[in-house]
Design a protein around this nucleic acid. Structure first.
Lengths: 213, 213, 213, 213
DNA sequence: CATGAATGAGTGTTCATTCAT
DNA sequence: AATGAATGAACACTCATTCAT
């Protein structure tokens, strides 16, 4: 009887991998909207399910819990911006050009995805489960683009040899985040071009006029 | 004391102003400890009341709600650090010395009051009720110390004339916060002296080596 | 300032101990009714609170959780029947009379409190948290009344010297429970007098006619 | 095989009766293991399906619901022990021997199938759907073996003529169950031989020493 | 003034069962 | 026949806040 198989039947999957991915995408999209609009706590699974036009329970087939869903929303976002930043890193003739491009791109992300940035800054990076998460890894990849640029700059003699790439990177990201936060939090504006230029100039050139000896 | 009455003349304080202030201080002290140890959400009014050795309900005579109590805890803290920073601002011979002193002091605050800093960064500044709060005003006073220093530096010809005091201030505070955060969040160490020196040097001197013309 | 006290204020309790006990009694009474009528799982805290005319949350001031409430319901019941059985143990001239009285009383309990007995047999004794519970201790006290009677009977020469009090006690309680169960479970009747007589006679006299040698 | 068709003639079994029976057996076997190990509530259909290496949904082609599956598990078990007990009933020279043999066998079942016995005692016999079930019928057949033995004993003049077979049977099963329960429930040991002897002696001979006249 | 009993809204999660494929 | 994706009902528990005493 050739048609008899042993063990688990390997019939055609009832749902195609594509449809499954569509489901995940739909849920992530709905969750992105709801989390973005109301924040993590105020958002309810029921509302997300309604937005995705599925039942509450189905969310738990694809995501292990509400927190997991939040993380997946931000992972999807982070993957996108990491890829874009890595691509950006190649552009620019001089070190200063490249630095400016990265700073500009980073600032631009806050404008393009204000709500996801707020979600990340106010509900995830600050949380106890951030450490060791996939998001933290993505964040590391993101910031390492800048570290690499600085190291290259040192190697090329375009950056002071005693500059600490890690410190410079922290100063840049910290500065930008601080500047962008009021805007991200819904208060104030953010002029990407001008800010990028000003920050680049400051970091590159410092502010001091050495006392004449 | 003749002003002490019984019955319902509630307009007249039945306990002395001093005792009332002692109460408030005791509650704030207890709340500081509990909020610091467990975070805002995880802390309960009942636990704070127990720590202050009073009843739950009495807290509501002095504070309008849990959130208000949190803010008062941080206001007390902020008042302390603002005063200290304003005093610090006077020290130092050159601009660079003064800048270094402020940066050092700011970093030192993260170490001295790690838990309150975490509370502020992760539960207050990020929240929707931060805008317009007394805390925000204190924060403005705090950061304006640095703005004033930079303006003075420009006036004295020690700082580039085209430097934007607001931008520089944001870069400095953002940078420091970003650098200190892992430590504040309970992960990693923070070498105040070294970090202060490095940040000061970077901000003051920039990182670039201008291309020779 | 003589009116100032230190530490926790010892004002008159806002609620008297009696009123507190009344509350507990009311909740236990309501829970007894609801658990008895619907069983443990099917009963909801909301329904019990409604029956006791209080809010859901108040139940949790007096009982740590739903399970605890169930146990307290049955403890109250068990305390009652243990006391009654212990009192009963004194009655009766001969051993056989006393044995009969205890058996009768035990059977009577099933009739008088059918629903609580069912609750105990079907939802508690069978559960994993029964071992080590207060209920198990009460049960031990309950059954030890019979053990003591048998031991006394042996001492008085009214019971075979080689009878194991523990075994006899188990046989009697097991037998009665088995006989009463259909009734307790809502199926069939239970003639207490007749059953008590028959069980007593069987245990006391056995069923065998020794083969003549 | 000509009867095998493709398409929608669903009235005709597409798989052979034998294979169908194998399926049922596999599911029952898997369910026996899972229910035995975790209890009814804690066991999930998904886990049983996984253990049987089929899909969740297929279980519902052979069993109408989870409860039905539980009953079929216990029916299979009961059929086995009923047959064994009926066979046992023939052994033994005297009434006392035969009684002893049945008691011994019954106790032995608790040891041999502790988990299924616990399942039956704690999740089925106690439930509202037990009455009228196939299990109850099997139970009746099981216990009637003992009733028949006693009736025969009366007929042979080996048992008191006024003994009620039903009562005696209930006393014996109730007693044994009560004695075995702690063991079945995972607490304590059970010495089958000794217990069987002691119970037999007690039932057969009673405990009383008639007062001298 | 001080107490602490009382309130009650609010929601993530599981899983037996169904049914489109 | 077999799959497994999809459904959706159901509920204990917490705790900030109020207010009778």
């Amino acid at each position: 009887m050739a048609t008899e198989t042993r063990g688990r039947m390997t019939a055609m999957p009832v749902i195609s991998a594509k449809r499954m991915q569509d489901r995940i995408d739909a849920i992530v999209e709905a969750a992105t909207a709801v989390f973005g609009a109301k924040g993590y706590e105020a958002a309810s699974i029921a509302e997300i399910a309604r937005a995705a036009e599925i039942s509450d329970g189905l969310i738990y087939r694809y995501f292990s819990n509400k927190r997991d869903l939040l993380y997946r929303v931000l992972e999807a976002f982070y993957e996108r911006v990491v890829a874009a930043l890595e691509k950006e890193a190649a552009n620019g003739a001089t070190f200063e050009d490249r630095l400016h491009a990265l700073i500009r791109r980073h600032l631009g992300n806050f404008v393009a995805d204000r709500e996801l940035c707020r979600l990340f800054l106010s509900e995830v990076r600050v949380a106890s489960d951030y450490k060791g998460s996939a998001i933290q890894n993505l964040n590391r990849r993101y910031v390492s683009v800048l570290t690499a640029l600085i190291e290259a700059g040192i190697g090329q003699g375009e950056v002071k040899a005693d500059a600490s790439p890690r410190l410079v990177r922290n100063v840049i990201f910290g500065a930008i985040e601080h500047i962008a936060w009021p805007y991200v939090n819904g208060d104030g504006k953010l002029d990407v071009d001008e800010t990028a230029k000003a920050v680049t100039a400051l970091i590159y050139g410092g502010i001091g006029i050495p006392a004449k000896t």
